[in-house]
């Protein structure tokens, strides 16, 4: 055994590809499932939310304009990096969620596999959800799914990694960019994911990860005019109605999960991909 003192880590936000502290200077204590101190996390502010939306909007053109093949490769590369951090994720999931080591292992494996599953969707979405429209006239008409834009995500509060991956991957796979509020009390796997993303080929700003108080930050996301859609999966239940009301101010698309947090171990379908897509129909006359 070494008596060396470990280097403790400062946990920060992930914003526009960089790791700033909260502009507010605030932090909050993160504790494990038994209440033991784990770390101080940055407590993001309204200003951080707004900066994150700016970063996400700036990244949208490049990410949505990348080829689906390229997005697939970039996201698959993230899975490779997740695999490399497997032990760290297992430790953090176990600390955050409690339970036995075997369960944490299974959760991390499922999360990596889920990321791979969504990485493979990027270049299939248009085939599955698009269409050639057999219109009654001399026109060629086709419909393609396109990303909605900037998506604000309240990540699940309980499932700190598998749930996180299950909400984030479908949003960015189709070309959206994201501002994600982590699980308030279990943010460590999300912070590690931000380190994975920062060293991957996902351009800065595509995913912005904020730790802090969900109930404090979510209203700013919900009311922000440059956010196009909201995933309220991890929003506190008693705030969903207010968040949906704020979202109506700019006709945001809202995915709200009522009732308990979903069982993330279940194999997903395309519905989470579909929720953050628009259908664009293009017409052109046919003739000689």
């Amino acid at each position: 055994m070494s008596d060396r003192l470990a280097v403790a880590k400062t946990y920060k936000l992930y914003l526009g590809g960089k790791f700033p502290r909260s502009e507010s200077g605030r932090t909050y204590q993160v504790r494990d499932s038994r209440g033991t101190f784990l770390a101080n996390a940055a407590q993001a502010s309204r200003k951080d939310v707004r900066d994150a939306v700016v970063a996400a909007r700036k990244a949208f053109g490049g990410w949505s304009g990348a080829t689906a093949y390229n997005r697939g490769q970039v996201l698959y590369r993230v899975a490779e990096l997740l695999e490399g951090r497997r032990e760290q994720f297992i430790a953090e999931v176990a600390a955050s969620e409690g339970g036995q080591a075997k369960r944490a292992q299974a959760v991390v494996d499922a999360a990596i596999d889920r990321w791979v599953w969504y990485a493979g969707w990027t270049d299939k979405i248009a085939t599955v959800l698009g269409a050639a429209n057999p219109v009654a006239g001399p026109y060629f008409s086709f419909s393609v799914p396109e990303p909605t834009g900037v998506v604000g995500i309240c990540a699940p509060q309980s499932s700190s990694l598998l749930g996180l991956v299950s909400v984030l991957a479908p949003v960015i796979a189709s070309g959206n960019t994201a501002v994600l509020l982590t699980s308030q009390d279990r943010p460590l796997p999300a912070i590690t994911l931000s380190e994975v993303l920062a060293t991957s080929d996902v351009p800065g700003g595509v995913v912005n990860i904020l730790t802090g108080r969900t109930a404090e930050l979510a209203p700013w996301l919900a009311a922000h005019a440059d956010v196009n859609a909201l995933d309220l999966t991890g929003a506190p239940k008693d705030t969903i109605a207010d968040l949906e009301e704020a979202a109506a101010g700019t006709v945001k698309r809202v995915l709200a999960v009522r009732g308990n947090e979903p069982d993330w171990t279940k194999q997903p379908d395309v519905s989470r991909l579909r929720r953050f897509l628009e259908t664009k129909t293009v017409w052109h006359p046919m003739g000689v």
Binding site: A131, N133, P134, V135, A136, G137, Y139, S141, S143, T148, G149, N228, T250, V251, E278, T279, K280, T281, V282, W283, H284, P285
Partner: peptide, 22 residues
Amino acid sequence: GVVWANTFNRFDPTAPFGGYQE
């Protein structure tokens, strides 16, 4: 949501219609 190229205001039940944003 709908882009008409070298035409305009074409509608058909087989062709999805609807908007982006507001």
